[in-house]
Computed example of a mutant assay.
Amino acid sequence: MSDLYTSTVTSIGADAPSMFEAGVVILFAEPVPPALADVSVVHSPSGELARDIQAGDTISIGVAEYTVVRLGDVASNNLRELGHVVLYVDAGDQKLLPGAIHVDGPSPAPQSGARITVRGA
């Protein structure tokens, strides 16, 4: 497995924990639009996404590791351009928005200072 993308969580929006309870993690790189700051996990990338994300890749946030099940058509591009993607944890057959990624893994609880890593399968 090779690292495709790395970033560090710089802050957690005040309303983000209620999103985590619903299995949703909204990632947004600095600078985050004010309208999304309260619900986002704000992060600072250390480089660009090396290739498009694919099913079977893994996304780690701190010690939690998620396996990519499927992704929307613009998810990789949004991560590349804006540092923005929405992770739906154990979403089942829920319809995905174009910028979302369905992942399997533990209940999310990102913390400030955690490392975000996307690894190729």
Rank of each mutant, 00 (worst) to 15 (best):
V41L: 05
V32P: 02
H84D: 10
G47N: 07
G13V: 05
I116W: 03
A22V: 01
A109D: 14
D57H: 00
S40D: 03
G72Q: 11
A55C: 05
G99T: 09
V68S: 12
S40P: 00
G56I: 02
P106A: 05
P45Q: 12
T67R: 15
G72E: 09
A29C: 05
L96S: 09
V32H: 01
T8V: 15
R115Q: 15
V86D: 01
I101P: 03
Y88A: 00
S60M: 01
N77E: 14
M1A: 14
I53S: 06
A29N: 08
P45Y: 13
A14D: 13
D3P: 04
L96A: 11
G47I: 12
H84V: 07
T58R: 13
T10I: 15
A50M: 10
L36M: 15
G56K: 08
I53P: 03
T58L: 06
D73N: 12
L82D: 01
A29Y: 05
P31L: 05
G56R: 08
P106W: 01
S76P: 05
S60I: 01
P98E: 09
G99H: 12
L82I: 03
A14E: 14
S18R: 14
A16G: 03
P98K: 10
V32A: 05
H43S: 06
E21P: 02
